[in-house]
């Protein structure tokens, strides 16, 4: 397989396609990454369609209403995955919960990528005092034990800002350090290229140089980083919610659903309540990781596949 792929790549480069087209072709040929992409898209579509699907999946599509008469029912024809301890349909909650978990992951990733890219590219481009100041600050943020500070910050902001955004902001604001470092080092390397020096010498404003010339070249790195971050930030959400420091309890999220495993009777006696979120979290993270690996391969001009 390796040799085939290699010759294929070589053949196509001869036709001098753009690097992006090559990457796309490489990615499309990566079966694992493609399967993962299909899975992830499926998950996203299903969760987005939750309000439309819910009435067809369950006789009780309302995810906030407590149904005392229908508590803790094992999976059956009416409730494909059973109901939880509040009498809410697990399948329905899984779909709605996915929206929240994916939303938290995606929004936090966006914050991280934007912040990290701005800080990293500015530091890398200007260098000198700006660089050392920004990098000191980055070190400072990186040196916080993440979990510890998320827990403390989340406790403080709880109730002041709407719960979900607290979590997104806190996770986002504490995680950008890594991206900033990577972007900076890439920019530092790119900056020395002649076309950049030329652009600077003819007086192009720094913002334009960064956006037009430097960022496109570090974009591939950012994309790969963002993918992997997306996965780890979903883990952050679910983990924090599991510990009771995450999304407010009234909002269903995969982490909050898994937190039911903390209940004495659920872990052993009612596995249908905690296993579905546990499995879907794992599957989602796994698929995002595969996509990330696939992208890394595809975007790496040196890779053989």
């Amino acid at each position: 397989m390796t040799t085939n792929a290699a010759t294929g790549a070589v053949k196509r480069t001869e036709k001098s396609s753009s690097p992006w087209a090559i990457a796309r072709r490489k990615f499309l040929r990566n079966k694992l990454a493609m399967a993962s992409t299909v899975f992830l898209i499926l998950v996203i579509i299903l969760t987005l369609l939750a309000p439309f699907l819910a009435p067809h999946l369950s006789p009780i599509p309302d995810i906030t209403k407590v149904n005392i008469s229908k508590m803790s029912i094992p999976p059956n024809g009416d409730h494909l995955l059973g109901t939880d301890k509040s009498g809410r349909d697990v399948m329905t909650r899984l779909l709605y919960g996915g929206r929240i978990s994916l939303l938290v992951g995606a929004s936090a990733t966006l914050i991280v990528v934007v912040l990290g890219t701005i800080v990293g590219s500015v530091a890398g481009f200007f260098g000198g005092a700006v660089d050392s100041l920004l990098m000191r600050f980055t070190d400072f943020v990186l040196n916080f034990p993440f979990l510890v500070f998320v827990i403390v910050l989340n406790t403080i902001l709880f109730g002041i800002v709407d719960g979900l955004w607290v979590l997104i902001l806190v996770i986002g604001l504490l995680s950008w350090g890594g991206v900033a470092r990577i972007v900076r080092s890439k920019v530092l390397a790119e900056k020395e290229n002649e076309y950049v020096l030329a652009a600077i010498s003819i007086g192009t404003p720094p913002a334009k140089v960064i956006i037009k010339h430097l960022l496109p070249n570090v974009l591939s790195t950012i994309i790969v980083q963002a993918t992997l971050l997306f996965a780890s930030l979903i883990v952050a959400e679910t983990g924090l919610s599991y510990l009771g420091f995450g999304v407010p309890q009234e909002t269903p999220s995969w982490g909050n659903m898994l937190a039911f495993a903390n209940e004495p009777d659920v872990l052993q006696g009612k596995p249908w309540i905690w296993m579905p979120p546990a499995l879907i979290i794992t599957a989602t993270i796994l698929s995002i990781n595969f996509i990330g690996e696939g992208l890394k391969d595809a975007l790496n001009p040196k890779s053989q596949r």
Binding site: T64, K65, V66, I68, K85, S86, R88, L243, G244, P248, Q249, E250, N256, A259, F260, N262, E263
Partner: peptide, 17 residues
């Protein structure tokens, strides 16, 4: 009050209902 216990939310929701 909210702690890590997920049943608190449903028992208060039940009263509101």
């Amino acid at each position: 009050y909210a702690t890590g216990n997920p049943t608190f939310e449903s028992r208060s929701q039940a009263i509101a209902q």
